[in-house]
Design a protein around this nucleic acid. Structure first.
Lengths: 197, 197
DNA sequence: CTCAAAACGGAGACTATCTCCATTTGACTT
DNA sequence: AAGTCAAATGGAGATAGTCTCCGTTTTGAG
């Protein structure tokens, strides 16, 4: 079970293989953190002390590597989804969930890009997580709508895309005259005054 | 004056230089249209029948080339800003303006990226247009706020960043279960029901 | 200890960005 | 019409990144 996380679900990995996979993952995490998801894979391989071939055998695409480094974060998020489910206030639950979703999407600079790509590609290492996240959002939104605290015209997809969009702009515009709180508030309440229609 | 547009304001360009500049611009427009702002410059140069050196002398960076291809669009947008200024309904004016801003930002796939970068870099071929656009947004917003149709907590910067974010996600998620109208409606009115607070 | 399968790594084929400078071209001057 | 020289050219080459292929090394089961 513990080894499952280390091997990415692949069983019977040879000792040297497991070791290398681990080191690559470790270095990748640090580089993505520092330089965003488009950090140089070449560099990551070099610093991990493996050849390019080894990196690509373990992680056939950048997306696969990104997905693997996000493993823990995804687990956290899934855990939080349970808490959210049990919150008494559907409105607060929705806000909390969207906030967490955004924090996740901001794990690495540039993450929204491949996530969005995965959302429509259907066959990507990241799309599994995408589907799950979409479903969870759907569930939390549905409850809020049932209780009348979210508009019925809004879909889970809209919220998900909105979260991705805001995460994207925030990551790239940090301290550019706005904040996560402000943009999210606008997304929640609108920029228009509410005494209309 | 007419030549000014063709030369990008640079006077006294030699005939061959002007010709080449023109052809690069033409080809670039088509390629950005087709493959987004990250289209291959090498390819553009090749198809325009000039060497890489020539392309880079006329347009020192990708941003410069993008900015040049947007010349006409920017003029249109500026023209529209005049119309918006004269609309009687401040609320409608703001909506109209934000819509136009977004249409502009969606001219090429991936345009929001360099625009956002220009917004904070201060010295970019695109930043002039950014500043102007920021000021115009500020003006239109201020009027709407004076007339009580826009929240006072919202800043022009927030709206601008929001427009960029939505333009970004829409360009990359076309037909992904949402539409420009829906996302913009949420940004305008919020996803929450309004009978609260 | 043996040896087949598993894993490795790095050379090499691509593609792209951007610079440099020997050569060519255009537009004045006479 | 010829001469001149700054302006403009283009493409070779430096650099950097992605990804594949395959001869060599390592592991671990028998």
């Amino acid at each position: 079970m513990t080894t499952d996380a280390a091997t990415g679900g692949q069983p019977n990995l040879r000792a040297d293989a497991r070791r290398n996979r681990e080191r690559v993952l470790e270095v990748a995490k640090r580089h993505f953190d520092l330089h965003g998801v488009s950090a140089s894979l070449e560099e990551i391989a070099r610093e991990a002390g493996v050849g390019a071939g080894t990196l690509y055998r373990h992680f056939p695409s950048r997306e696969a590597l990104v997905a693997a480094t996000l493993h823990d974060r995804q687990a956290e998020l899934l855990g939080l989804s349970q808490q959210v489910r049990q919150m008494p206030d559907a409105d607060a639950a929705l806000s909390r969930w969207l906030e967490a979703l955004q924090t996740y999407l901001r794990t690495f600079n540039g993450l929204p890009d491949p996530v969005l790509a995965a959302l429509k590609k259907e066959a990507s290492p990241l799309s599994l997580s995408c589907e799950t996240l979409g479903e969870l959002t759907s569930e939390v939104l549905a409850r809020a709508q049932r209780e009348g605290s979210a508009r019925n015209t809004v879909s889970a997809n809209d919220l998900f895309l909105g979260a991705i969009a805001i995460a994207w702009v925030l990551n790239r515009a940090e301290a550019c005259g706005t904040s996560a709180e402000k943009l999210n508030a606008i997304f929640a309440h609108g920029y228009q005054e509410t005494e209309r229609s």
